[in-house]
């Protein structure tokens, strides 16, 4: 499985994500720079890491979403390449128009950094197929702008089409319908605020994030 992590100025979860991908797939991911105009050939997964790209200036993810590499990411996503955006990566995917909605300031205005319980909702995507639908997993969040908002018609559509991948099983940030992660309609683009790469090995105290990568690996390898 050939994977890549896109690094933006201000990304800070890129190395954790790279270690998780290397350990689970057995191959170190390509580390790509936001200014690269093209992607390597034959990628099986493009991952956008968490962090504070461009200092969260303007809006979280807004400037990164217009980076040169994002045109290539959009083209790959349209061709069906799996794209995973975690935290700031999710914000970048919504700003780039690859996922609907927007991530706004947390309803409580505070930066939330703790383990949260999540319900796995749709298991049809390659990212969630290794989980049990309705199962509760625990994955940490660390964000200030994770309050997912979209108009009611969009929210209804996300639910009806099975695009809600994860919901918070507790109050976290005010997200509409407790949405923690969504996929695009085709299911090959996932954005989520929680950090699965932080719970992949026993030393992390929990491995609930591991199945996300293993599920992907099983489909792609």
């Amino acid at each position: 499985m050939k994977t890549a992590v896109v690094v933006f100025p201000g990304s800070n979860c890129d190395r954790d994500l790279a270690v998780a991908l290397r350990d689970i797939t057995g191959v170190a991911p390509a580390m790509l720079w936001h200014d690269d105009p093209e992607l390597p050939e034959g990628l099986d997964l493009i991952a956008l890491p968490g962090g504070f790209s461009h200092g969260d200036y303007l809006r979280s993810g807004a400037i990164a979403a217009r980076a040169p590499i994002m045109r290539a990411v959009s083209t790959a996503a349209a061709r069906g390449t799996p794209v995973l955006g975690i935290c700031n990566g999710f914000q970048i995917l919504t700003e780039a128009g690859l996922l609907p909605g927007a991530l706004m300031r947390n309803a409580g205005l505070d930066f939330v950094c703790r383990d949260v319980a999540l319900e796995v909702v749709a298991t049809s995507s390659p990212f969630t197929r290794a989980y049990q639908a309705g199962g509760i997993i625990t994955i940490p969040v660390a964000h200030h702008d994770g309050n997912f908002q979209a108009d009611d018609a969009t929210l209804d559509r996300l639910e009806q089409q099975g695009q809600v991948a994860f919901r918070y099983a507790e109050e976290v940030n005010g997200s509409a319908r407790a949405i923690a992660g969504i996929t695009n309609q085709a299911g090959n683009v996932l954005g989520m605020m929680p950090h699965p790469e932080r719970v992949v090995e026993p030393a992390h105290g929990r491995t609930d994030g591991r199945r996300l990568f293993e599920g992907l690996l099983a489909v792609i390898a």
Binding site: L58, A62, I63, R66, T94, E95, G101, A102, M104, Q149
Partner: peptide, 9 residues
């Protein structure tokens, strides 16, 4: 439309 505002919100 292209950058300064996010017309979703």
């Amino acid at each position: 439309r292209k950058l300064l505002a996010n017309t979703v919100i």
